[in-house]
Design a protein around this nucleic acid. Structure first.
Lengths: 236, 236
DNA sequence: GGGGTAGATTTCGGATCCAATCAGTGCCAC
DNA sequence: GTGGCACTGATTGGATCCGAAATCTACCCC
């Protein structure tokens, strides 16, 4: 284990996050690990030892095992018998394919969601977009960007579709972070104008435009991301 | 629990299937349940009690719990805290959306797989298609149809993509069975000619045609399926 | 000095026991 | 007669203990 900060030590933060959430222990453990992974505190390829997590959260290993299985369903961990769980590491090609999947699936999600988004939802989305533009922190940007996109699909309560889109976001979260951190900052105004176009189409309930703009938005992100070798740890 | 045949009784078949597979117990339990669900022995909405499965397979409840989580990741079961696992029941609209997802995702899978399928793979696919045309059993048709389609994607070893496509097939397996059983038989020659078109395009390595034919194939199936109320238990 | 193997340690997988929660039932009051 | 409540049986969730597999290490042989 590397000497990364905040690792191997049970901070008060950890326990607060854990205890703060109600419900079954396995669900709470899952929520804790989910946040750790999405926030980038656990990197792709990193192993997750059941005992360590259990000890840190004051639970036994069993709910940790259950939690890891739940996360597996969300694309956040992977499992190998007798070898344990890790955060999946995607190859450059795999990340690219996930983005291609997003190009096809998310416009569908938006299309299905579009007629069900009311004025209230539109206002919330506009607010999120305003906060993105006012924001200057990269980590916060990742959160808000996710909130914006998944928010535009929130009208459609089709479980299989939403679950899959969320899964795609989950599995590429780390690479998105690396991309934004490394040099995506210059691209932010492009992202914002594209968001504006999408939001406009959503408010107008123009399905064809919404679909087109969203597809283009994801496609351009994929291409830009593909040009950054460092995102995939290929800078050597 | 209904008086359905082969339910609640540990047949020799069950144990043979279970013991026959190697590997960890949870993996074997998962394989057993997976087959039960895909073969239609467990219907959507049906509850799966851990103890019953454990007893039937001669294992403890723990590997059953793990297996249920694995199946959850494959879209074959769903879980509610303190209420246990069930086979998911999809609404008409949900099934339709899953088919729309397939319309978008599977052509991508085929496109990614296309350049990697060699002559050997082509021969195997042609053989499967021949067996579909020679076949007269509806259950066998379901198996072979699945083998054909998933086989065309087998060249692409991108885990996220293949896993998702498989998941989509899993979650609609029951509705496909109901459809085929009820009246899809007349449509079989259509299915077969469409398969031939797809196979041809695959062999010619014509991505555009393959994608187009496949999308149309899934789309037509979705529309036909939508016309059968009984598939969704709406015949009252 | 390098590679391979055997032992020790670590970590995961499974069994059993106990606690928590839910559903169905019957009783009582209104 | 109906609605609500408490109780009981059934079922899942969690803890602890034990066994099995993999990894790491140290040692020996080449």
């Amino acid at each position: 284990m590397g000497p990364r900060a905040g690792h191997g030590v049970s901070t008060d933060d950890d326990l607060a996050t854990f205890a703060g959430t109600g419900g079954a222990a396995s669900v709470r453990v899952a929520a804790y690990l989910r946040e750790q992974i999405l926030r980038g505190h656990l990197a792709p390829g990193e192993r997750i030892r059941q005992e360590e997590v259990a000890e840190r959260l004051g639970a036994s290993r069993l709910p940790v095992r259950e939690a890891l299985r739940m996360l597996e369903a969300e694309g956040l961990t992977e499992h190998e018998p007798h070898k344990g769980a890790r955060v999946p590491r995607l190859s450059r090609h795999e990340v690219e394919v996930v983005y291609k999947m997003r190009e096809r699936l998310e416009p569908l999600a938006l299309l299905e969601s579009l007629p069900l988004l009311d004025d209230d939802a539109h206002a919330r989305l506009a607010d999120v977009q305003r906060r993105i533009e006012d924001n200057d922190d990269l980590d916060r940007f990742l959160e808000l960007d996710r909130e914006f996109h998944l928010g535009t699909y929130s009208g459609c309560h089709i479980d299989p579709l939403n679950a899959m889109v969320t899964r795609l976001w989950n599995s590429t979260q780390h690479y998105r972070r690396a991309f934004v951190t490394l040099g995506g900052r210059d691209r932010m105004w492009v992202v914002n104008s594209e968001h504006r176009l999408i939001l406009d189409a959503v408010v107008r309930r123009d399905g064809a435009d919404a679909e087109r703009f969203l597809r283009g938005h994801i496609r351009r992100t994929r291409i830009e991301l593909g040009h950054h070798p460092a995102v995939f740890g290929e800078e050597g």
